[in-house]
Amino acid sequence: MPNQLYKVIENPIQTEEVIRKVESRNAGAITVFIGTVREMTNGKRTLYLEYQAYKTMAEKKLNEIGNEIENKWPNTKVAITHRIGRLEISDIAVVIAISSPHRNVAYEANRYAIERIKEMVPIWKKEVWEDGEMWIGDQLQKTRLNKS
């Protein structure tokens, strides 16, 4: 489905395409969040990231987030694409586009979307360093803290 609003894909994300899905004559603003792969995390150099998803469930959860937003802030339109697989530094991992009649809502709703993604969408990233690798998630970070 080329026009699907909530997608998990393996190829580079076409940001323009995501934006186009939320264009509307009623919109006064479109906010676009672009999540990119960062090189340095807590002083450690990442070589690349490996993203994995429970794809069908992840797309459902993205859809749920979109529904939450459209209920919370009427007249918004939401589109989210997340990329999985191997991503290099500076590659785009996620694009969230939200249109709204007014800019305040467009900003607020976009922030809400990324926070919800980090809470409940079954997607995971593994940081690969020169001397090792680690799946990222609360669990391992907590485990590490407890052990140290």
């Binding site: 999540g35 429970y54 997340h82 990324i114 993604i117 809470e119 409940m120 969408v121 799946w135 669990q139």
Partner: peptide, 8 residues
Amino acid sequence: FLPPVSGG
């Protein structure tokens, strides 16, 4: 079985 998620 889903470990804590880390997307975005």
